[in-house]
């Protein structure tokens, strides 16, 4: 039992990460690939936060000496355990991974915005956001020696479609 509780979080988070990765590589739709990327990044956040949790801990915001919440938090825990884990009478969770993941979330949204902006431009240039269709159009156009002349024709047919 204790080993299940000890590792289940890691396993669940790893499945979530790999699910995100699967979405990225299995779809050809650019927007959906960005969604997969977001899920991958969020799930990495879940992994970091899993490592930061201290059993019976509380949010790492220092609690005042005379706050009644202290006694209540302490009363929930086994005294021997409390003794080993507490600092200054309170068990705090580890703040460092929180900071790292805050950073990672913000990095994630910046990447998402740039990726979507490029996807919108791809749509404007190719008329589609499916990777396979884009590759097909590139093959058609660049297979010809004098593609400059053909440029207008393909453009026109794309506009119809």
């Amino acid at each position: 039992m204790s080993s299940f509780v000890g590792y289940a979080n890691y396993f669940a988070v790893i499945i979530l990460m790999m699910g995100g990765l699967y979405v990225i590589f299995s779809t050809s739709n650019l927007i959906k690939r960005m969604i997969g990327l977001s899920i991958l990044q969020t799930s990495v956040g879940l992994f970091y936060i899993t490592t930061s949790k201290v059993f019976g801990g509380t949010v790492p915001i220092l609690i005042d000496e005379d706050d009644p919440a202290r006694a209540e938090l302490a009363s929930r825990l086994d005294p021997a355990y409390f003794e080993s884990a507490a600092y200054d009478g309170v068990v705090y969770s580890n703040p460092l991974p929180h900071v790292l993941i805050l950073t990672a979330i913000v990095v994630g949204v910046a990447t998402l915005a740039v990726g979507l902006a490029i996807a919108v431009r791809v749509r404007e240039a190719y008329g589609t956001v499916e990777r396979e269709e884009i590759e097909r159009k590139d093959r058609i156009r660049h297979a010809h020696e004098s593609y400059e002349d053909e440029l207008d024709e393909t453009e026109a047919s794309e506009a119809d479609a």
Binding site: S2, G6, Y7, Y10, S52, Y87, N94
Partner: peptide, 23 residues
């Protein structure tokens, strides 16, 4: 992951070394 410290362990390296210092 089977080699990682157990979930919630206050003496895990992650929680005991630098993280503890900040607290």
């Amino acid at each position: 992951a089977l080699d990682l410290p157990l979930f919630g362990d206050p003496s895990a390296p992650a929680n005991a070394h630098v993280g503890r210092f900040y607290i």
